[in-house]
Amino acid sequence: MNKPSMRKVGMVTTETSEPSALATAAPDIQIMAATAVGLRKIYGEGETEVRALDGVDVGFEAGKLTAIMGPSGSGKSTLLHCMAGLDDITDGSVRAGDTLISDMSDQDLTLLRRETMGFIFQAFNLVPTLTAEENILLPLLLGGNRPDEEWENTVVQSLGLGERLHHRPDELSGGQQQRVAVARALVTQPNVIFADEPTGNLDSKSGNEVLGFLRRAVDDWQQTVVMVTHDPLAASYADLVIFLRDGQVVGELRDPTADQVHDRIRALEA
């Protein structure tokens, strides 16, 4: 079987010191880690019909941190879930890289998520019976793969988790738990990391730490991160912010500042 994570290990370890050819080339050729075309997600029928996503065309650039923002009910989390193959779609198509995932079987989707995607949720990110290290390695273990110890060490050290590897989740602070989740998302070197309100349950200090790590993952390790957030400050860490309202893309902002994001949101909510 083709193992994308293994293939990329070499690239990363040799290229951490200077920007890779791929990373520098990325803006020009616009490699997309995930794309959706005409994406529709409709809940219910008739009177109770809700159009969570109503014709979304979007692409998430590889090697970038993209934030998805929008007022409550705009469909931002639904978009993330559909892109990650966690939710089925009503119409349109979703691709991970070149692979069409919108009609994949559950088994293929699961393997795809395991091998090419990383996940960070708002809360309840860790399996309570497993240690921090086991939680980090979980996607690899599920695939029956050996972790690349050098890469694992790099991730663990840079997230400051070295001392905590053998603790269980209930022995970790909220920030530490979320850092373990980041480490787990990074350990497979996925094509894209999906983060659903990753700082929603954290105090601002821990939140900033986590956002800093995500930023570093993109800058230093050429990872791709797609993050849903409602916090303009969090969005300001992104390369690109995509704005959603009523299930439709209503704009984007490159290299945003927190104030710019804040103004746009105010405008959307008005």
């Binding site: 599920l142 695939g143 787990r184």
Partner: peptide, 16 residues
């Protein structure tokens, strides 16, 4: 339920 959902999301197959 929650932890099973989480594990399914990050790559536990139905069979597993």
């Amino acid at each position: 339920t929650q932890e099973i959902g989480l594990m399914r999301a990050i790559g536990m197959t139905r069979r597993q």
